[in-house]
Amino acid sequence: MGPISRRDVIRAAAIKDPLLSAILAFNVEILPDAISEIQKTSVPVFCSDIIYSILESYDQWQEEQKMRIEQERLEAVIRPGAVRLLPDCIFRQSKPAIVGVQVIGGVVRTQVNLMREDGANVGEIKGIQAHNENVGSATVGQEVAISIDGPTVGRQIHEGDILYVNIPEKHARIVELELKLKLAEDEREVLENFLEIKRKKDAFWGR
């Protein structure tokens, strides 16, 4: 087939399937311009004068890629979480509302929506502060301040309210079917309460 060229590397890098974007080189030279392009693109090259060695290395790489892709998919899933608004911890009523909360189950993160116990969406968490420092998430037991874009304290939300992370239906299906056994007890309890609320209006929600 001839030596591996820069053009070969560019073609491999353009392949959209991450499990196929690689070069298998059996007993051929890799040209200098190809080496330079490989360093830029990080396209994996499996090169040997033993064909079985190439195939074995490629198969192992594919398995590692599959595991990485699956891990990234699951890490992107919005997980169960619930907070209770603490008394006397209203720092701003609206635009955004800033309130003190206790995480009573699961995890809450920025850029997720919250809903009330009646199923009404109240708004998106824009920020979380713990000990006067911005953080990306808070877990069960923590008391933090959160800013919520959307509601007005005293109208849509009140002290003592329990708010749930409003998990999108597609994510909820993944959590229930693929992650439920891996959840901590507090996360499972929050998930069950959340699904019960959603399925009061639609028995097939998230199924």
Rank of each mutant, 00 (worst) to 15 (best):
S48A: 05
I50A: 06
I50Y: 11
I50L: 06
I50P: 03
I51S: 08
I51L: 14
S53D: 15
I54Y: 10
E56H: 09
S57R: 13
Y58A: 01
D59H: 10
Q60M: 06
Q62T: 12
Q62S: 05
E63H: 15
E64H: 04
Q65S: 02
Q65M: 06
K66Q: 06
M67K: 13
R68F: 11
R68C: 09
I69Q: 15
L74M: 07
V77C: 09
R79Q: 10
A82D: 15
V83I: 08
R84C: 00
L85I: 15
L85E: 00
L86H: 03
P87Q: 10
D88M: 07
D88W: 03
C89H: 13
C89T: 11
I90T: 08
F91E: 05
R92A: 11
Q93N: 15
Q93G: 09
S94P: 07
K95R: 13
V99T: 03
V99Y: 04
V101D: 10
V101P: 04
Q102H: 12
V103A: 00
G105D: 14
G106W: 02
V108G: 02
R109Y: 05
T110I: 13
L114P: 10
L114V: 04
L114T: 07
M115Q: 11
M115T: 03
E117N: 09
D118M: 01
G119V: 02
G119A: 00
A120H: 09
A120R: 07
N121E: 07
N121P: 02
V122S: 00
V122M: 03
G123M: 13
G123R: 15
E124V: 14
I125H: 05
K126D: 04
G127P: 06
I128S: 02
Q129A: 05
Q129R: 13
A130Y: 04
H131C: 02
N132Y: 14
N134T: 11
G136V: 05
G136W: 07
A138C: 11
T139C: 10
T139I: 12
Q142D: 06
E143Q: 15
E143T: 15
A145V: 09
I146E: 06
D149P: 11
D149W: 15
D149A: 12
G150S: 12
T152A: 13
T152M: 14
V153C: 09
G154L: 03
Q156A: 02
Q156G: 09
H158W: 04
G160W: 08
N166M: 09
N166L: 03
E169N: 10
H171R: 02
A172V: 03
A172L: 04
R173T: 11
R173I: 02
I174K: 14
V175G: 02
V175K: 03
V175S: 07
L181K: 05
K182Q: 12
L183P: 01
L183W: 05
L183A: 00
A184N: 15
E185Y: 07
E185P: 00
R188T: 14
R188W: 14
E189R: 14
E189A: 07
V190S: 01
E192V: 06
